[in-house]
Design a protein around this nucleic acid. Sequence first.
DNA 1: ACCGGAATTT
DNA 2: AAATTCCGGT
Length: 403
Amino acid sequence: MDCNCVSDLLLTSPVPALWTPGFAFPDWAYKPESSPGSRQIQLWHFILELLQKEEYQNVIAWQGDYGEFVIKDPDEVARLWGIRKCKPHMNYDKLSRALRYYYNKRILHKTKGKRFTYKFNFSKVVLVNYPLLDMAANSSFLLAQNPFNGSNHGPDCAPLTPETLQTLFSNPRLGDATTRAPLFERQSETEKLRLDAAFPFLGSGVTGYTKPPSLLPPYGRNAAFPDYPWNFNPYLTSTFPLNSSKLPASLYSPHFYPNPLSSSLAQLPTPLSLLPGDSTERAGAVGASAVPRLSLPPHSTPLPLRVDTNGASNREKELLGGRAQSPLGGRGTKEDPGSDSELEITDLSECSSENEGCDFSPDSLEALESQVRLETERMAGAPRSPAEVSLAPAKEGKGLLRS
DNA sequence: ACCGGAATTT
DNA sequence: AAATTCCGGT
């Protein structure tokens, strides 16, 4: 308790409970039911949080397959995690143990052969937040839609009825604590497989769906979104039977569908397309109305697989060129002591000072939107030179870099 | 490095 | 429940 780290401030401040929008986690992803005041951040939230911030690019970054990331500086990640959790003695050994616990929970798995490389099972991540996808995965419609469905998907294909949807989504917080808690474990293997078939791009790895490795460029500050319309929202994706005549339109209202993007956008100062470099006044839900939230594509493409590949790769090239990155190839190297102290500072600033009580900065939304965009680009299989090659060992000595 | 059991903590 | 801590084994 005598830990003077910042997380105390962080957690007690009037945060909008939306701390990690990296992959669009709504507030209720944080298990608010369990002791409202003490909502502890989870490691995978934290990882995503780092992952979405370009200032940590040399510490941890997306790399390789969809959902795959590499911890370039394990000690630093552990240090940051220790700060966040007020565990001064945290190290990578312990952190990695925690990561290993995610294997069984199917949140993560290890990318074998690549050191410090793990991969998110985004299907699970999504599921825990958006049971609608769960439903969608069970809908025969969807299975018929997606090109990845094998011949059979298990015997129990529960039909998707409006009633089920109603009961499931009439409560934005996904029922009570009892139903929500074990979501990760709750899903059976067949369900999982079905879901993977339905959302191969979510990359749980079961379907063997892979793409050529590529390096995600840093998230742009003013990412232009228009290239990728909202029906690429990975949570909803066009695969969902949005225009199914079987379902009442009311189900698609934001009320029934706690879409992360729309709920996030509700806090946007301005519509995404108009996002300036600096944040203007936060006008509440002003931006939200202007944004096509759950824009339901009338006929929807099966999967977000076709995108202007040339444009994507060009943009990637452009972004990559703009930032000469010298990540670390060797173990625990750190090229720039200055950046280290910088990390320290940014870590603090995000807690309170700069954003003053609002953790959910426009920054985060930009990250979100560019993430959606980038992932979409990745889905297009934008060919990329093996960027991992650029990983050059910088230095050996490390550990005495804190100033 | 990486794995995972076991005991313990929060 | 989700780590944290410790550790023997590969």
